[in-house]
Amino acid sequence: MSKFIIKRILVMIPVLLGVTFVIFTMMYFTDGNPAQLILGDMATEEQIHELEEEMGLNDPFFTRYLNYLSDLLHGDLGTSYVTGQPVAKEIMDRLPVTVRISFCCMIFAVAVGIPAGILSAVKQYSILDNLSMVLALVGISLPNFWLALMLVLVFSVGLGLLPPSGLYGFKYYILPVVSISASAVATITRMTRSSMLEVIRADYIRTARAKGQSENVVIFRHALLNALIPIITVVGLQFATTLSGTVVNEQIFAIPGLGKLMVDAIKARNYPVVQGGVFVLAFIFSILNLVIDLIYAFVDPRIRSQYVRKKNKRQAETDNRKEVPA
């Protein structure tokens, strides 16, 4: 098992390299001159040239990319053009807020989506099922920034119940979390329903009923445990999308998170911050994927034995090799 984890961590290296290359290239070809932006409209041609030289903006593409990589390896994500602060520090200031929001979103999505999906599957074609499927369709279809604006309009402007922006307490979390996680709730509900429907018809569910087991245990112990794999996949993916999906909604709710930092940085051609932000997000994605794979193994003994069997096979092969000369 530990061998599997190490292997997966090693696979992350080329993935992250690819990410840095793509984002660096995109930023390289983007319009706008950072030197000009830093110095402002009043700067002279000479001053700009001087600063360009100083920042290495005139170096060839690969030189700049390799410089960036070597800085990255030393844990240096660069310096923000706008504030002059290290990018790593700026990101670490903002990241906890985004992670906290995403985490709340996922807890909300799982707490609503999985029970709704189970209920839909168990009472298939009932009013409850139809209702939750319609709501799920709505949840998937509505863009989350639009939903955010509408929620603000109704609950803050109209009813005055909830604060429209900022992040100073529990109440402030409600609107962002609901608006960001709407599509996650919907996707998880639908996936839970279809996965449960498939499993509920399985022979081993009939076996469990034939044992005289109560319906609750049949559904939660026998069916849900088997239906969990696709649900976990979706939850993991939704977590990742939520992390990056907060970008626009952080803007709407004026939440000082990673999303807002990156949007501001893109507007200001603040390359190091954009690159750093994307890199950190990609890193979190990779870790999340690894965690999902490990949860698979925890839930499903067949997947677990695959990981272990590979190890045993290799063990057996080396044993055989040892035996041959003797």
Binding site: A202, D203, Y204, R206, T207, A208, R209, A210, K211, G212, Q213, S214, H222, L225, N226, V299, D300, P301, R302
Partner: peptide, 24 residues
């Protein structure tokens, strides 16, 4: 439910699918 498994029990047709794959 009290009858099932206790008084009357059933052996199913397809052993490949009639056991729950995630329980020992």
């Amino acid at each position: 439910r009290a009858h099932r498994g206790k008084d009357i029990s059933m052996i199913f047709q397809d052993p490949m699918t009639s056991l729950n794959p995630v329980l020992t």
